[in-house]
Amino acid sequence: MTVLRALLVWSLLAGVMVVPVIVATGSEFLQYRSATYVVAGFAGVIALSILLLQPLLASGLLPGLPMSVGRRVHRWTGVALLLAIAVHVVGLWITSPPDMIDALTFTAPTAFSVFGVIAMWALIAAALLAGFRKKLRLRPQLWRLAHVTWASVVVVGSVAHAILIEGTMGTVSKILICAVLIAAMALTVHRLQPWIGVWRRGAANLRR
């Protein structure tokens, strides 16, 4: 029964991740577009799919995968996520530099651009926290709270960006993966409870 449950969860997860990519291949938005635009668009869709894995890997929510292994994979998929976002941003920059300048300077007239850039900078902040964890010498509780906070901003910003933009993903597949992503992040925060220990230490210092 446990094996069947694991297979079912992994199959559903794979479906949620792969379907938006498949739907995007037949998108009318890719017709008559340059190869650079197509690559940039697919990089954004793939990034959203990879993002879905991150909270599940970090919190040990995937059946059959120990949390210790999941967190090691989490680091590598984090690198893959950064690369996908880099391809997405660079590709769109090559396609239309003025639009990307407006987006990066928060002067774009479209809300999805703002949320996309916020998610990008939050992802960079979360990655820097992970990369310089030892050098920062933060207490584990404080580091976890900061990392989860930035990760939550990445998820919320990415979902808002995806929902608001009329891009290559289909409406149904887009809403589905975004809903599952929000649920995965909420379950992860509930399971990790990153605030535990942070406030206790602060209260203890105040009493001294």
Rank of each mutant, 00 (worst) to 15 (best):
residue 1 M to W: 02
residue 9 V to P: 09
residue 14 A to E: 11
residue 15 G to N: 08
residue 18 V to T: 13
residue 19 V to A: 14
residue 20 P to V: 11
residue 21 V to C: 10
residue 22 I to L: 15
residue 23 V to C: 02
residue 23 V to T: 09
residue 23 V to W: 09
residue 23 V to Q: 07
residue 27 S to L: 05
residue 28 E to K: 08
residue 29 F to I: 07
residue 29 F to A: 10
residue 30 L to H: 09
residue 31 Q to R: 01
residue 32 Y to N: 07
residue 33 R to W: 11
residue 33 R to V: 06
residue 33 R to I: 07
residue 34 S to W: 06
residue 35 A to Q: 03
residue 36 T to D: 05
residue 36 T to S: 06
residue 37 Y to I: 15
residue 37 Y to C: 05
residue 38 V to M: 03
residue 40 A to Y: 00
residue 40 A to V: 14
residue 41 G to S: 08
residue 42 F to E: 00
residue 43 A to H: 02
residue 43 A to C: 00
residue 44 G to P: 05
residue 45 V to N: 05
residue 48 L to E: 03
residue 56 L to W: 12
residue 57 L to F: 01
residue 57 L to P: 00
residue 59 S to M: 11
residue 61 L to V: 12
residue 61 L to T: 06
residue 63 P to L: 00
residue 63 P to N: 04
residue 63 P to W: 05
residue 64 G to C: 03
residue 65 L to N: 02
residue 66 P to C: 00
residue 66 P to E: 01
residue 72 R to S: 04
residue 73 V to T: 12
residue 77 T to Q: 11
residue 81 L to S: 01
residue 81 L to F: 14
residue 87 V to R: 14
residue 91 G to T: 08
residue 92 L to T: 07
residue 96 S to T: 13
residue 97 P to I: 06
residue 98 P to K: 15
residue 98 P to L: 11
residue 101 I to K: 02
residue 102 D to N: 13
residue 103 A to H: 07
residue 105 T to Y: 01
residue 105 T to C: 03
residue 106 F to S: 10
residue 107 T to N: 08
residue 108 A to C: 04
residue 109 P to C: 12
residue 110 T to M: 14
residue 110 T to D: 11
residue 111 A to E: 12
residue 113 S to K: 11
residue 113 S to W: 04
residue 114 V to E: 07
residue 114 V to D: 10
residue 116 G to V: 13
residue 116 G to S: 06
residue 116 G to R: 06
residue 117 V to Q: 05
residue 120 M to W: 04
residue 122 A to Y: 04
residue 124 I to S: 01
residue 124 I to R: 00
residue 125 A to S: 11
residue 125 A to H: 02
residue 127 A to L: 08
residue 127 A to S: 14
residue 128 L to M: 13
residue 128 L to T: 03
residue 129 L to A: 03
residue 129 L to M: 06
residue 131 G to R: 02
residue 136 L to Y: 04
residue 137 R to E: 10
residue 138 L to M: 15
residue 139 R to W: 05
residue 139 R to C: 04
residue 139 R to A: 03
residue 142 L to W: 10
residue 146 A to Q: 07
residue 146 A to S: 04
residue 148 V to P: 07
residue 148 V to K: 09
residue 151 A to N: 02
residue 152 S to N: 13
residue 153 V to G: 09
residue 155 V to W: 12
residue 156 V to C: 01
residue 156 V to L: 15
residue 156 V to E: 07
residue 158 S to V: 12
residue 159 V to E: 00
residue 159 V to M: 06
residue 159 V to N: 07
residue 159 V to W: 03
residue 160 A to R: 01
residue 161 H to K: 10
residue 163 I to K: 15
residue 165 I to V: 13
residue 166 E to K: 11
residue 168 T to C: 03
residue 170 G to C: 09
residue 171 T to K: 13
residue 171 T to H: 13
residue 172 V to Y: 08
residue 175 I to T: 14
residue 179 A to R: 04
residue 179 A to L: 15
residue 180 V to Y: 03
residue 182 I to L: 15
residue 184 A to V: 06
residue 186 A to C: 13
residue 189 V to N: 09
residue 190 H to E: 08
residue 197 G to K: 03
residue 201 R to H: 02
residue 202 G to V: 11
residue 203 A to H: 02
residue 204 A to H: 01
residue 207 R to K: 15
residue 207 R to H: 10
residue 208 R to P: 02
